[in-house]
């Protein structure tokens, strides 16, 4: 990484710490902010957050690895989360999953080559009366059919 890039990152993390505070309870909001904007949290960012909050980098990493919505590995620009819990499972999540996999040419857990999509399973997201359901980033789509799901992803930029 270039030194100028590093400095820019440090500055950005510094601004987040200013925004959310430097107490330990600010850790998750800070990480969520980075995750939201950049889809994952780099090693260097983790170290910077740790330094500014005065905790060990391992603490930061342990928090990231605990929560399924935080990631330390590169993800696509859009994260697609298909619900795998019981209602969606019974209402045909498998068919939807297969259709999405075929269309994007990747399996669940993977990211497309152009880094546009990451496919993931998630547990119940509270749409059991309108299953199967999926989230694209923060937006929820319900009553999916294979066709509908693929169409939704087509419209995502």
């Amino acid at each position: 990484m270039l030194i100028s890039e590093k400095q820019a990152l440090t500055e950005r993390v510094g601004m987040l710490v200013q925004k959310y505070g430097n107490s330990r309870s600010a850790l998750i909001p800070i990480l969520q902010d980075i995750q939201h904007n950049f889809k994952y949290i780099t090693d260097f960012e983790q170290q910077e957050v740790a330094r500014l909050l005065d905790i060990h980098p391992v603490e930061v990493y342990s928090v990231i690895s605990f929560y399924s919505f935080l990631s330390s590995k590169q993800r696509g620009k859009n994260i697609v989360r298909l619900c795998q819990s019981i209602s969606c499972e019974l209402e045909g999540k498998e068919k939807v999953a297969k259709a999405i996999e075929r269309e994007l040419g990747i399996k669940f857990g993977e990211t497309t080559k152009d880094k546009k999509f990451t496919l993931e399973y998630t547990n119940c997201m509270g749409m059991c009366d309108q299953s199967p359901a999926m989230m694209v980033n923060e937006k929820v789509y319900s009553k999916l059919t294979p066709e509908k799901a693929v169409q939704i992803l087509k419209e995502v930029k």
Binding site: S85, I86, N123, C124, G126, C128, D129
Partner: peptide
């Protein structure tokens, strides 16, 4: 933090 599969009343 309504996470129990099958619960959506809080939503």
């Amino acid at each position: 933090d309504e996470g129990e599969p099958g619960t959506f009343k809080d939503r």
